[in-house]
Design a protein around this nucleic acid. Sequence first.
DNA 1: GATGGTGGTTGCATATCAAAACCGTGAACG
DNA 2: CGTTCACGGTTTTGATATGCAACCACCATC
Lengths: 161, 161
Amino acid sequence: MTRNSLAEKNCSLARALDVVGEWWSLLVVREAFFGTRRFQDFVDNLGIARNILSSRLKRLVAEGVLSRAERADGGVDYALTPKGEALMPVLVALMQWGDTFANAEPAPVVLTDRATGTPIAPLSVRAADGRVLTPQDMRAVPGPGADAQLRARLMPRSSKR
Amino acid sequence: MTRNSLAEKNCSLARALDVVGEWWSLLVVREAFFGTRRFQDFVDNLGIARNILSSRLKRLVAEGVLSRAERADGGVDYALTPKGEALMPVLVALMQWGDTFANAEPAPVVLTDRATGTPIAPLSVRAADGRVLTPQDMRAVPGPGADAQLRARLMPRSSKR
DNA sequence: GATGGTGGTTGCATATCAAAACCGTGAACG
DNA sequence: CGTTCACGGTTTTGATATGCAACCACCATC
């Protein structure tokens, strides 16, 4: 069954998921962050089926998240593009959520600041002035690209929230 | 084909994806953030098939991301739990990435600070002392819960990166 | 030339997703 | 009380996604 494409939705989250929301995609990107370059290493490190990996790599290259380059020795390297690197907050957020809520054991991986060797801070959603915000502190409002339906959905409602 | 379960992986990201990585799950969570409570409203707002929604809601309730409560009028409300609300940075990160890279149009949704009405800041990954970090500023090291394989993979390597 | 490493591709079985129809329950209304 | 409608699902069916295993083409090395 073809999955409902999220590519046309008036929603950046849906569009992002259209690119990286398939099973395995974010793990492939994470592997690239860890320095994995070669097809077989992705297979070994992820335990992913070769055909699925091939398909995911192809998609991620086509979307500009990864680049594919042939080495002088005839091999192939995959590497993150700047667009791919921009997914770092996504991966960090998921990993930190997983550390807290989805993993019964202590954290398997700690992300550290190279300069100090200390663990990075938990991600926080912040206001423009730097204050940390909770979900209740925030409001979703229609942006410049909102369509009529979305605009109607996000209009202020009296005491519905 | 049964998807390779990510539930046993020595990796918090994989474990998080095991909970919320199925097609539609994060969009369901996003809808709950927007205040959607009722089954039919999820269907209408997401354009999701009823059986898939039922399955996703069941899973998210079982995992403690959403709670399910029956109303006095006989209806059912789904709402985020604190565990679910903790996914906010994930959703914000994906949405901001989508705004920048996956959506050709201007942002459909702007998240604002209720207090000031101004848009929230872009998410940044920070060091403990507040400095903003790039991927190159960071290092993944084995945490207390790392298994032997992961430990070996994350050992320092000379000029491999 | 033979071998092995590499990056895939192919065929097949099973699970997942989507569309559509259906079902059970309870509230509201006449 | 009976009927209707809203609601939250469940079931059936078929197309596509995923995984396993085998295979293939190409290139470097010996």
